[in-house]
Design a protein around this nucleic acid. Structure first.
Lengths: 118, 118
DNA sequence: CTGAATCCAGATGGATACTG
DNA sequence: CAGTATCCATCTGGATTCAG
């Protein structure tokens, strides 16, 4: 049994590790943008996302989507069209990121004004 | 003047860019953890942060802190002690990340339970 | 259309040693 | 204590080409 300060510090270390867990999942140059794209449309096809995010290549989109799928944030559905299209949507778990996405969006707007100015 | 759908899509593209702006600032393996460390203590010395975050090296801590300072999220103060110590605290702008940090922390805890199980 | 495969440059970050 | 400098392996991600 440690004193109050030690307990507090242990608690903070745990919290720091938790943020890192989140960031591990969300890291990668495009991941948040992809989630954001799917998020605001409810569901979105591969080529649509490709178009939503300026600069991303199909290679990276494919790769990041796969990682998001592994982390159970995104659900992939093959549509029986001609030619085949694939639709992505957030899982229930992925949807819990909504608040964070919104906050990050708003913060990004403020920050740009702050740094770039005007 | 475009139709409603085009306007909506333009708006979404802007929002996606805004999230990316945020992530550009917050990217790097340790940045969020560093902010989190400083955040929960109000102010924190270099060696304290080094101790808060398991795995980080002084080289990386120094580098990431510098970037955070450039982005006006962190303020650096040299204390007149023997030997010299340096104290870091969040700027007013950096403090606006509080909500995001908290949300990310909570989400990280939930996510770990979800993925690792139990 | 939705990827996978290959190739490759440049960025990232760890280890270690050194300085004021 | 708070960095800086150097070296070096690994990772990241872009361009291009190919396939179902």
């Amino acid at each position: 049994m440690g004193c109050k300060i030690e307990e507090f510090q242990q608690e903070q270390k745990k919290r720091i590790k938790a943020v890192q867990d989140s960031m591990d999942v969300l890291n990668g140059k495009w991941k948040i943008a992809i989630i954001s794209s799917i998020c605001c449309y409810g569901q979105r096809r591969f080529s649509d996302i490709l178009n939503d995010i300026t600069g991303i290549s199909n290679r990276m989109l494919s790769k990041e989507l796969k990682e998001l799928e592994i982390n159970q944030l995104v659900k992939r559905t093959i549509l029986d069209t001609q030619p085949i299209t694939v639709q992505y949507e957030l899982t229930e778990h992925g949807n819990t990121l909504q608040t964070i996405i919104t906050n990050l969006t708003d913060w990004g707007i403020v920050h740009r004004k702050k740094i770039v100015g005007k």
